[in-house]
Amino acid sequence: MDHSAKEKEAIALVAEADKKIKSPQGFLGTLFGNSSRAEEACEMYVRAANMFKMAKNWSAAGGAFCKAARLYCQVDNKLNGAVSYIDAGNAYKKSDPEEAVKCLSHAIEIYTDMGRFTIAAKHHITIAEIYESEMLDIEKAVEQYEQAAEYYKMEESTSSGNKCLLKVATYTAQLEQYHKAIEIYEQIGTYAMDSTLLKYGAKDHFFKAALCHFCVDMLNAKLAVQRYEGMFPAFSDSRECKLLKKLLDAHDEQNVDAYTDAIKEFDTITRLDQWQTTMLLRIKKTIQDEESDLR
């Protein structure tokens, strides 16, 4: 494919569309006197944007989609405006993450005004992922996941909302905001234990909540484990619960070797993920610190 030919064609189309809406009678007069002209210009911008995409010129594609989006909104075609902002955001994702976030945010505004909260939530997740992978701003990603969760809950999409909240819990625990993470893990664990389909996952949520408690202090962790066993008897039999009890004992005895052995033994059967490993290392450090304090 000849990229430069596509690009030239796209540039010419954008210029033609610009001309169409900047006719002698003045922009607004033309627009509202002849909205079909504006619609034609929008279609040209979109066609140009797609050609830029074929030429892999992501910034120009984003720019052309944006022109279409703004024009659609001016002639009150909100839905097409939102779609064009999403297309702009997806193009900019490859070249300019900040612009991508702006475009997706414009689309979200339109969707929430229209009461379409599920689709707004989906785009909040896209923004969260941009913050996670492109901009490495975890706190902003957390805000986006929280907003998405809120919209999903409003629309009774509990499981989609919970997926977003689990992301929030993962990150807030990493940021050492343990109380917030505990609240989410306990809430989702309680929700899961009452569901036939989700029951199996409940132990993981309680396990993670207990590890967060442990990072705050040991007494909290001990009481939490007892509480989870009372609420959800199946938790008592789980390997996770048995591991927690061994870790609590090792912590009690200030025995780093027993602590490490318990984790190794668990890990040979059930692989610990990166997050769990991080939390367990933080807890281990508290034993080591306390040990050196005693010397």
Rank of each mutant, 00 (worst) to 15 (best):
N57T: 08
M51N: 10
P24W: 11
Y178M: 11
N57Q: 12
I287M: 01
Y259Q: 06
K180G: 03
G62H: 05
W58T: 11
A250T: 04
I21R: 01
Q288R: 11
G62N: 13
Y200T: 15
L28W: 15
Q254V: 07
G161K: 00
Y85R: 05
E290C: 06
M231F: 04
A55N: 12
K208G: 05
K180I: 01
K180T: 03
I283Y: 01
I127C: 04
A173Y: 11
E240Q: 08
R271K: 10
L247F: 01
V75Y: 14
S23W: 03
M114C: 07
K199H: 09
A192C: 13
R239S: 10
A82P: 10
L294V: 02
L104E: 00
P97W: 06
G115Q: 11
L243T: 14
I184M: 04
K8D: 15
H205N: 06
A61M: 04
L197S: 13
S133C: 10
L175S: 15
F32T: 08
S159D: 15
Y131N: 07
S160V: 05
Q147R: 10
K222R: 12
T170P: 01
A64T: 02
G201I: 05
G89L: 00
A262Y: 00
K140D: 12
K93T: 15
A49D: 08
M44V: 13
H124E: 14
Y191V: 00
A55I: 04
D18A: 02
R47K: 14
T170A: 00
E291R: 07
L280M: 09
A55H: 12
K208L: 13
R239I: 02
D267W: 00
H123Q: 01
H179P: 10
L211V: 10
K78D: 12
H106S: 12
S23R: 06
K19S: 09
R282I: 02
K242P: 10
I138W: 09
F206P: 00
F266L: 02
A55V: 06
Q144W: 09
K180W: 02
K199W: 00
C164T: 05
Y131S: 03
I269E: 12
E290K: 12
D194F: 13
P24T: 05
A49M: 04
E40G: 07
F65R: 05
Q187A: 09
A262L: 00
H124N: 15
D257K: 11
T270F: 08
A88G: 07
I130H: 10
D257G: 09
Y259A: 03
A209I: 02
C73Q: 13
R295N: 07
D204V: 03
N90I: 05
D2N: 13
Q74S: 06
K208H: 14
D293W: 08
I130W: 06
E7Y: 15
A224G: 14
F214T: 00
Q74H: 03
E253H: 11
K208W: 07
A234P: 15
A38F: 01
G81Y: 13
V101G: 09
A250S: 14
F65S: 04
K163R: 10
K180R: 11
C164N: 06
T112V: 14
A15Q: 13
F206Y: 12
G201N: 09
R116G: 02
L198S: 11
C42H: 03
I130S: 09
T126V: 14
K203P: 02
E183A: 15
G62S: 15
M279C: 07
N80I: 05
E132F: 14
T172D: 11
N34E: 10
K245R: 15
